[in-house]
Design a protein around this nucleic acid. Sequence first.
DNA 1: CCATCATAGATAGTGGCGCTATCGGATAGC
DNA 2: GCTATCCGATAGCGCCACTATCTATGATGG
Lengths: 217, 217
Amino acid sequence: MRIGELSRNTGVPVPTIKYYVREGLLPPGELTSPNQATYGEAHERRLRLIRALLDVGGMKVAEIADVLAAVDDPERPLHKVLGAAADRLGRDDVEHDDAESATARAVVADLVSRRGWRTHESNPAAIDLSKALAAMGRLGHGAFVEVLDDYADAAEQVARADLRYVDRRVAVESMTETVVIGTVLGEAVFSALRRLAHVDASAQLYGADGSQERKPS
Amino acid sequence: MRIGELSRNTGVPVPTIKYYVREGLLPPGELTSPNQATYGEAHERRLRLIRALLDVGGMKVAEIADVLAAVDDPERPLHKVLGAAADRLGRDDVEHDDAESATARAVVADLVSRRGWRTHESNPAAIDLSKALAAMGRLGHGAFVEVLDDYADAAEQVARADLRYVDRRVAVESMTETVVIGTVLGEAVFSALRRLAHVDASAQLYGADGSQERKPS
DNA sequence: CCATCATAGATAGTGGCGCTATCGGATAGC
DNA sequence: GCTATCCGATAGCGCCACTATCTATGATGG
């Protein structure tokens, strides 16, 4: 398959495919002559994965490059791949160093130990969690920690479902790829479900129909 | 309070504050003379909210403008505010019209009716859900629907916790503001918890320590 | 064999976004 | 008066995800 066909099959413009190759998201095609290359099924799959991570997962190109490099590296242990995927939020943003941050970190440490979670507070996810809770604290919503255990229960439930799913699909494709898809797209799925459940739950409580009708622009 | 003090209190640069005012995120200060204005507690609060929505919630400035306009409009019913907050994903992206999309829509319709959720499939969240599931389908992960009910259980649980929290805090501040904070920042919280739970669950299954150690750069 | 089309690889440009810099004129507060 | 600050407006910047253009080469069909 040449690049034009790859483009037609996936709906991704040719220059964009070249861009992804340049950025290391997509391996180059196999050269049959100095300026001809062919692409296979793997490229098509990978291209669809890239678009899903971009469009649905909201990841940045550089992040995708990191994650896919980890997926392609057979040496890389699974939790490192997850780490690369998890570093999405915790980057170079301003470090608040106020009371809320300290409180939030303490809350997280307490939660982790109470849950018996085998993780460390240097885990990017734990840092993200602290940041989110600190932001809520600054907004006068420090009391949100009261529902944290409900959240954690649900998170454990989802995590168990994820693991079960991955386990069931071993050897269908690369397990790391399945993990990435499950982690990133699963987040989008859950987020949508949560919003749907909100509408229903608030309809139940407040009697609105929650139909979300919108003007057809 | 003048703009300089507002800036110092919140850590947001003065030109950025002016930018937010221009974009309609922040109401202008009260003019005491043609070119002097004072700002109050409300501005400080609003500014912190904006930063939280931006930094933690990952929302765009234009989206925040929409949501905050809805928050400030006492006529706007609650579910419309949620709607404005929910339109984050479903925008002008390419409309796939393949078998996966149709399947995904059917799966969502089935889920909604099976759950008895009082919502319509035109709900932005339902559309986002379809898109996410369709993307999974295109990646050969159509079987993900098998865990959808586990996800939905967890989502209902979280939604109930959210409603309980909002209910408990009525009259602390604007309820719509609480809803926005809970919806947007709550998503960040849950996402971090889910990733934490992944690490623990996979450690439990595969014996890795999941410590995610990283080079201190 | 040759016209036409597609391709590889390289470089430069584009549009959107979240700011950031600068400016002219006005005011605050000592 | 004098300095610091401010208002409002306009222009620019840096990043990001592409997109356009170009040259040289190769594939394809009559």
